[in-house]
């Protein structure tokens, strides 16, 4: 799940840095992420990812990255969307 080998993986999780706090799982508006048995994060529904970058912005451990990011505007953070779940 964490490999960059598969180009269709929208999000990378750095398992060594993830502390299993669950913030990204709760904040993802599309419920893409789930906790594995060890509490760390895996992609359960990668096809639902809209690359909003909320998981990346909310992860306190720099452990999760959206590959490529969405648009420049989203990356700039100036857009008028909710920070996470509405």
């Amino acid at each position: 799940m964490t490999s960059a080998e598969s180009p269709e993986v929208p999000v990378l999780v750095r398992q060594e840095w993830c502390k299993g706090c669950g913030i990204c799982i709760a904040m993802c508006p599309k419920k893409v992420l789930e906790a594995a048995a060890d509490g760390k994060v895996v992609l359960a529904r990668p096809e639902d990812c809209i690359k909003c970058e909320t998981c990346e912005i909310m992860c306190p451990d720099f452990a999760i990255r959206v590959v490529g990011g969405r648009s420049k505007e989203v990356a700039r953070g100036r857009e008028d969307v909710a920070d996470a779940r509405a």
């Binding site: 706090c21 669950g22 913030i23 912005i57 909310m58 992860c59 306190p60 720099f62």
Partner: peptide
């Protein structure tokens, strides 16, 4: 785990 300090740092 879950400390908000990392969110601020980001």
């Amino acid at each position: 785990p879950g400390c908000g300090h990392g969110i601020i740092l980001g």
